[in-house]
Amino acid sequence: MPSPPLLEVDDLQVRFPTPAGPIDAVSGVSFSVSPGETVAVVGESGSGKSVSALAVLGLLGAGRVAGGSVRFRGEELVGAAPDRLRRLRGADIAMIFQNPMSSLDPLFTVGDQVAEALREHRRTPRRTAKARAVELLREVGLPDPERRVRSYPHELSGGQQQRVMIAIGLACEPALLICDEPTTALDVTVEAQILDLLRRVQRDHGTALLFITHDMGVVSELADRVLVMYAGRVVEHGSVAEVLGAPGNPYTRALIDSIPTPATPRDVPMPAIAGSVPHASDMPSGCRFHPRCPRVHDRCATEPPLHDIGPGRASRCWLHAAGTAGSTVAGVRGVG
């Protein structure tokens, strides 16, 4: 990347206490986001995507960062003073969540909630904040914002609610917007509109997006680079075209193969990855994907490192190791 990264996450480890002892939801996760760039994080449920994002904001709740570093504009956020983090949140790094309905306080009008962010960070006077809220709602494409500013969340549809969440996120013009599966709860048509909106916002403001999703379609539409996570680890990262076009890791391959297409035969079971993501308390030894991997072999008993398999591209699999044929998974080239 030519410009210095906006966000650098290095060897992040997040630990949650449980009655059975501490478990690591995320370990050894590294990535960076440059200004204006869109980085997607994909993986199944429980792969540690959301935890990584929350760790950036210091919003882990019961968990804590047990190791590694998170730097924003070069400033270390792990161990930063709570007040410093609070001032960054919303102002420089904003986040929008999966379920817009429950992410809005039901007792306040949407205008109030957009204005709240402004009043918190900029000490904007009430009237100015209200006017700015109308502007923001117009910008995110909420119809008739002068009137809608006085609507309560339950009066809006899911897509409109998510637009409001985006307006709240944009209120202080953050340099980084973290989107945690913002379209998962929405219809496909609405999803397309929200993705359009995010793209437009990014173009107009140069906002960097850290986009968490489990939808490969969304990744290919929106992201510049992609980070594939499995069981708390990064298993592959690289540019979207490369990773989706020629996945290096069997897990990425399997994810892409799971996407049904019109050509998917109807009379056989849908392609799916057998089994489910192991729980962090019951992690398989060696490669974490090996119990489910179609290409499992002897070396998978020890955990593979991330192998560089191209410029800005790496994959965590022994198949790339010297002596193993092929740098991408053999026989599965071609777009899924």
């Binding site: 609070r86 379920n99 709240e116």
Partner: peptide
């Protein structure tokens, strides 16, 4: 535990504001 409290924290709301604006009214 409500997402709107988490969302408020993600916009940088501090403890007093969360108490007064989100917890008490609800």
């Amino acid at each position: 535990q409500e997402p709107y409290v988490e969302a408020a924290r993600a916009t940088g709301a501090g403890l007093p504001r969360i108490m007064a604006r989100h917890v008490l009214p609800n």
